[in-house]
Design a protein around this nucleic acid. Sequence first.
DNA 1: TCTAATAATTAGTTTTGCTAACTATACCCT
DNA 2: AGGGTATAGTTAGCAAAACTAATTATTAGA
Lengths: 154, 154
Amino acid sequence: MSSSTNSCAHEVLEVVPLIMRAMVSEIRRHRGPDLSVPQLRTLAFLNLHEGACLSEVAEHIGLTLPSMSKMVDGLVARTFVLRHPDTNDRRRVTLALTEGGRGALQAARETTQAFLAGRLAALPESQLAAIVKALGVLRPLFDGGHESNDQASR
Amino acid sequence: MSSSTNSCAHEVLEVVPLIMRAMVSEIRRHRGPDLSVPQLRTLAFLNLHEGACLSEVAEHIGLTLPSMSKMVDGLVARTFVLRHPDTNDRRRVTLALTEGGRGALQAARETTQAFLAGRLAALPESQLAAIVKALGVLRPLFDGGHESNDQASR
DNA sequence: TCTAATAATTAGTTTTGCTAACTATACCCT
DNA sequence: AGGGTATAGTTAGCAAAACTAATTATTAGA
């Protein structure tokens, strides 16, 4: 393990939480339809994985099945999500975004992206490109990760 | 606002939460002295801002004063933090890390950094350098931010 | 000096996430 | 085919964490 690896890890450890905190507090500031961050993450996951079942969502978000079930209750009550029984396996419940759910997600994304763009506006093209490239390298390292999502260790 | 700005914002919006989630779940996996993420953030803030008062910490972390007060109760009970009355303004309580607190923070940081280094190990020097540089550009944009931290909007 | 503002705490409630227990369905294996 | 085990989801009950409202102590200002 090179020392560049460590100093890069150090930089990630410092800067990523900084950005994340700014994003989260921006989301909270604008929460029109009053969605918490985990709820937004759930909508985002469903947007990508149409028709995922409850367990899959719970696993991905990192909640237990009961907690996710209750969170989905709330999303269903606000008509952001629909529950359908799976036709193949009737134990499963598949989830789908409604138009309203997609809209809420889109709205939250847009305000957050606009906030980020505001911060980035000062940068010249070359630096923007460098950032995109660097994040493109990081993404696959953390995307899906180990899939070792730990229900057990909690 | 250039379109590069927007695509960069988009990339940040996608990748930063990904990395953050991996870090948080790693922290939770290893929590030896059983510190929550907000507690760790509190210790980190106190490490940088020795002698900050309770309100300042609450503002920075994004908690209300009562919540922060109770969290500090816990940190004091575990002897990670000390409360001192401020000599100038006796309403204020200033906070300081103990050696134990500093140690706990350091330990958590090291395990997280090691985790990150593990993920980054596959990358060649050139890409590591590019990432460090890109994050170095991002950092000042989100460091301290606008200081417009909102107790009110919550 | 008396009133208003500020810093922190306490009290009580709400939210959220957990474990345990339960129901229903599917899988397996003899 | 039938019975035991495993899996998916929900319900119930509880614990942790964060909020609002109210309280106390201190400072600042009219």
